[in-house]
Structures are given as C-alpha cells and as structure tokens.
Write a protein that binds this DNA or RNA. Sequence first.
RNA 1: GUGAGUGUAGCUCAGCCGGUUAGAGCAUCAGGUUGUGGCCCUGGGGGUCGGGGGUUCGAGUCCCCUCACUCACCCCA
Length: 423
Amino acid sequence: MKYKTLKGLQDILPPEISIWQHIEKTSREIFCTYGYQEIRLPVLESTDVFIRSIGETSDIVEKEMYTFQDKGGRSVTLRPEGTASFVRAYVEHHLYNEPAPQRFYYMGPMFRYERPQAFRYRQFYQIGAEAMGIEEPKIDAEIISMLARILGDIGLKGLNFEVTSMGCKNCRPAFRDALKNFLRDKLGSFCSDCQRRFDLNPLRILDCKVPDCISSRQGSPPVTDYLCADCKGHFESLKHNLNMLNVPHTINPNLVRGLDYYIKTAFEVTSESLGSQKAVAAGGRYDGLVDEFGGPPTPGIGFAIGMERIVPLIKDSMKNSDGPDLLICPIGEEASEKAFLLAEKLRMERLWVEANYVGSSLKSQMRKANRINAKHIVVIGDSEIKNGEAVVKNMVNGTETKSALNGEELAKTIRIQGIIPLK
RNA sequence: GUGAGUGUAGCUCAGCCGGUUAGAGCAUCAGGUUGUGGCCCUGGGGGUCGGGGGUUCGAGUCCCCUCACUCACCCCA
C-alpha cells in the first residue's frame, strides 16, 4: 500500500459516520434550546493567538503545536483548541457589544502534535460552547447542566462530573505557596515526574496517579481553604445552583486544568470505560482572557467535548441499519431502462432509491437487496411493464403489496409501509 | 520526548524443535434448472508472510537493522 493517513490522523468511514452525525445533531438541538448559536472559525491562526492565551510554558505551546511558516514568512499554527480562536474572533468582531450573555458553539477539528494513543489523535474533533459576559455563577451551572443534557441525550451513561474552583489571580498564588510548603519536606517520597512538577507546576502533583504520590499528598491543604472571598462566594453559589438543577456531580479539589487561562470554576467529565484517556469533556471559566486579547474586561466560561472520546462509548448501542427504502430489480433490457427512470422519479419523492444497473439473476439481486439492507424491493419484468403494475415486497417482514408502476403510486405504497421520506 | 508490545488474505487469526505448491473462519464474486432474499451447499478471486540484510542445503519460523502500528508515561478532549 502506497499511501496512508499520517500518524495520528484517521479517516472516518460510513458505518461510523452515522454516530458522528447523531452526536452533532443532538448537540445542535440542545444548544438551540439554550440559545447558543454556531460560530465557524478558521483552523489556522497566527501563532501568537495560542501562545498568548494558552501560556508560553504550557505543554501545548512548548511541544504540541503544528506550527509552520506560510509563504509570507508569518508563523501560523493549526489550532490546538477552540477557545483561543473564539476569543480572538469575539474581540475582533466586537461581539461584546451584543447583549450579554453572548452564547456560541462550534464543532470541528483541532490539532496537536502528540504521540497518538487510544482515544487520542493528532487531529481530533471537539464540540465546544462559550458563554460570554456573565460573571454570575448561574451561567456556570447552566453550562454544566447543558453539557450533562447533551451527553445524556446522546446516550452516554455512567459519566462522572467533577467540579472545583481554581481560585483567581489574587488567591491562587497563596494556595500554590501553601501547597509547596506542605510538599517541600516530603518531596523525596514522590515520583520523579512530581519532583519535576514541584517547580514547574505544583498543582499537577495533586492529580498524579502514582499510588505513592497519592498517599504522600494525603492531608495537603485543599484549594477551597485558600479561595478569596469572591472566589469562595462564587464556588458556593455554583454548588447551590448545580443542586437546584439536579446536576449530579462530585467536588474534586484535586482537579487540575492544563491551560493557563482558567480561573474559578473548572470541571471535567470522565468515563471509566475508556482506559487511560478518560476525560470526555472539560471546561472552565476564563474571565481575564478577553482583556488579554485587547477587549474590555469580560467574563467567559466554556467547555469542549472530545468526539473521539464519546464515539466509542455509544458505538455498540447504535447499530447501523441504514439502507435504501427501495431497490428496483429489473429483469431484461427494457426493464432496466424503466428501472433507471423510475429510480429518478422516486428520488423526487425524497426516497432513498437504488436500481440495479447490471442485469443478473433475480436471486442474486435479492441477495444484494438483503446485503445492502434495502427496506423494499420491486421486481420489474416484461409482464409488469405490460400490465403497468408490480409487487412491492417488504424485505423486513416479507409482505407483498400490489402497486401501479409509476413514481407517485410506488412512493405512496412505500410510505404506507412506514417509511418516512427525508425532509 | 521515554518505555513496552505487535506486524501472515479486505477483517479476525492459526502456522509445532526451521522442511514440499502458506491455511481457517468471516467478507467478496459466481452458481445450486425458467422470476423471490436471509439459513445451507459448491466453486472462484484475493498473500512479494511490513521492508532490507544475515545464518542455513532450506527462513513466515532464528539473528541484526529499519519502517509501521498499538498501548502506556508525559500531557490532554
């Protein structure tokens, strides 16, 4: 084989694509009920957009970006996530002048140059939502509730919603110091990664999965003790609102987000049935990001769902039963012409119709009908053409119905069998 | 970037201590007396055994290199 997809990239083929469409359709419906509107953003941005927002020292920026020079010598980057591009657009088009909250959603590919692994790709798809202009924690609860609704309506079960507050510019440094003080003298009992994290990103130690690290960090000060009055009030109110909306969740003070811009509310949805990449969606609040991009101080909160993480979770429950509403099986040359024409007529009735173009035995045509999951067949031979009447056979239950041999009548007959034409 | 594992037909895999023309199931195509499917039966097509080198009378099998894929770490959706 000469050509293959690049490492970490994949083709998504028809049997599976129906799951993707199901997820996208369901998401759009729910977004609509909450007033979120679609926004389409370019996949390519000036590299600065990401360095500025995600953080110079983050892993994404340091080693995972698809960055290259365009022909004009500019440094451009394939987006590694959606929020940075979104905020750029938000500021560029002065969307903050619309009445708050401004709510948007997007879906599309993201790119990170990472070593691929189960449920992790270099080109991966996210469905994201962003709510701008409201600081009130009701919007935090609303967006988490909406996320729960989307995932639930898609058909996912057994998900775990974890919520925490990460503090803000004012209180996070205090927590960081307290944590480092707690860890400093027992650093020797942590894994080498955690020892490295101590200076780099001490918060990450809270989320290490090495058993020794888990036990060694027992009794570490919880973030929630170090929140400033503002953050604490926000967090308390968020919890209250989540309970009001009956969103099942657990408080996980050890939850850590990877991007620099998150403050206050952070959340993550995980599934135990996924192996090591178990986060299916995650998000948080990013109140300082708009001013970072030169806009007015504007609060914002959002999340992203990882498509590749949820597709396998519903793969088994969604059997693909797609097939034509009708397969026309002609016998003989004249019938073949008739079938060709009839198929076109029936498609004008918004039915999925196939006609066999190569003449073969009826038996093999029937086998094909079965194989491609055709819901009905109609056999056309000399006598059908002569009488202007044919038998429509329902391939699911075997019943046969006589019908006049023209587009309208055939369409009617098929609809009686319970086939709903496409909109 | 680090570590481990796996590469044989379209797919899932078997192939013993190296030994004739490399196998099975599924899939595919064609048939199984005139125009009725799924089950069953018969047959056909399809493989430079990932690639290169070496050892040997002889390599899918042993050794080395290389490439690809997978899983895990880091990190993340």
